[in-house]
């Protein structure tokens, strides 16, 4: 293949266009407003696991550092606080250092927020959308809703919420992942990430949408904690064929709690020598003025197209991947 040519078959471009049109129809019929928010912003997320791109804006005599957004979440929440009502957006999102079979540093995201929805309602809407988009192509597609705890226990026999490092280590060794002992050390969250991505996801049934809810609180920076169990956050993830497609929250609206979580992450970034970020004061101001109760979710559309076209690599659904962008 010559370098100038698209990395995907032209047929996949048509499927992408059809999918975008179908998504817009889906939300228009349900009365959500399509919005656009800036991709270049003065602040960005503090999540230590996400690396961002930054750029210089030259407007003499001033020079601003601007960030390419890792998700449109903060700007969309400011719209919600301003009274926009339920909204959706299809946009590019940028994550530095991410390239692989399922990752391109610039990718297309669908993100939407539902006013007054709790998580079960939003999960039902995610299932509706995925079935609407995928069933015509894959009529045998099934749907499963399961808690993180149940799924983890079913696949591994381990308890995800109480950290028993001995049983985690024994499980890793028994399954040929001896290196996990050094990699994960005594970090509960890293152990969960390791075992979930290496042992749970690969064992998910094919041709099945998994809505996994009740994630450990130690892994969520923007979700509320469950009222009856502070170890659990009001978060779900959606998987198809073992591929992570999206993440949803019952959104945190308490500005003090949000500010505290930003501070914790900023301190952690500093301790790990990661690039410094400032907390998004405009988001905190918006929360201060009042974010209505809402749930929101983001879906990676390139991965959804991979599933729709049975593609093994994200390059096969992008006009030009980072390799020849």
């Amino acid at each position: 293949m010559s370098g100038w040519q698209p990395s995907c078959p032209l047929e996949h471009l048509r499927l992408r266009a059809q999918m975008l049109a179908a998504i817009r129809r889906f939300f228009d019929e349900r009365g959500l407003l399509e919005v656009e928010t800036p991709l270049l912003c003065r602040a960005t997320g503090t999540d230590p696991q996400l690396d961002f791109f930054s750029s210089q804006f030259n407007l003499p005599p001033h020079q601003h550092n601007l960030f390419l957004q890792t998700s449109p979440e903060f700007a969309m929440k400011r719209l919600l606080a301003a009274g926009s009502g339920s909204i959706y957006q299809i946009c590019k999102a940028f994550r530095n250092g991410e390239a692989g079979r399922f990752h391109n540093p610039e990718f297309t995201m669908l993100e939407w927020y539902r006013l007054g929805y709790d998580l079960p309602q939003l999960m039902a809407e995610v299932a509706d959308l995925l079935q609407h988009l995928l069933l015509p192509l894959q009529p045998s597609l099934m749907l499963t809703q399961i808690s993180y705890q149940q799924l983890f226990q079913d696949s591994t026999g381990l308890e995800p919420f109480s950290f028993d490092v001995d049983s985690y280590q024994a499980y890793a060794v028994a399954n040929g992942f001896t290196e996990a002992i050094n990699l994960c050390g005594d970090d509960h969250a890293v152990w969960l990430d390791f075992i979930f991505s290496h042992c749970v996801q690969p064992n998910m049934a094919n041709h099945t949408i998994y809505l996994v809810h009740g994630y450990p609180a130690i892994q969520s920076s923007l979700a509320r904690l469950a009222l009856d169990d502070p170890r659990i956050s009001e978060r779900f993830e959606v998987f198809v064929n073992g591929v992570e497609l999206g993440n949803g929250y019952f959104e945190l609206s308490d500005p003090l709690e949000q500010s505290a979580r930003f501070d914790r992450e900023i301190a952690y970034r500093a301790s790990q020598g990661l690039p410094a970020v400032c907390k998004d004061e405009l988001l905190l101001d918006a929360l201060q003025s009042g974010l209505p109760d809402c749930s929101g979710v983001a879906i990676g559309l390139d991965r959804l197209l991979m599933i729709a076209t049975d593609s093994k690599s994200i390059d096969r659904v992008l006009a030009f991947s980072i390799k020849n962008a």
């Binding site: 991410e98 390239a99 692989g100 990699l183 969250a189 990430d193 979930f196 290496h198």
Partner: peptide, 15 residues
């Protein structure tokens, strides 16, 4: 072969 494994919210690995 080098496969990048990264949960949306979590630790990135290379398998």
């Amino acid at each position: 072969e080098n496969e990048f494994v990264k949960p949306g919210k979590g630790q990135a690995f290379n398998r």
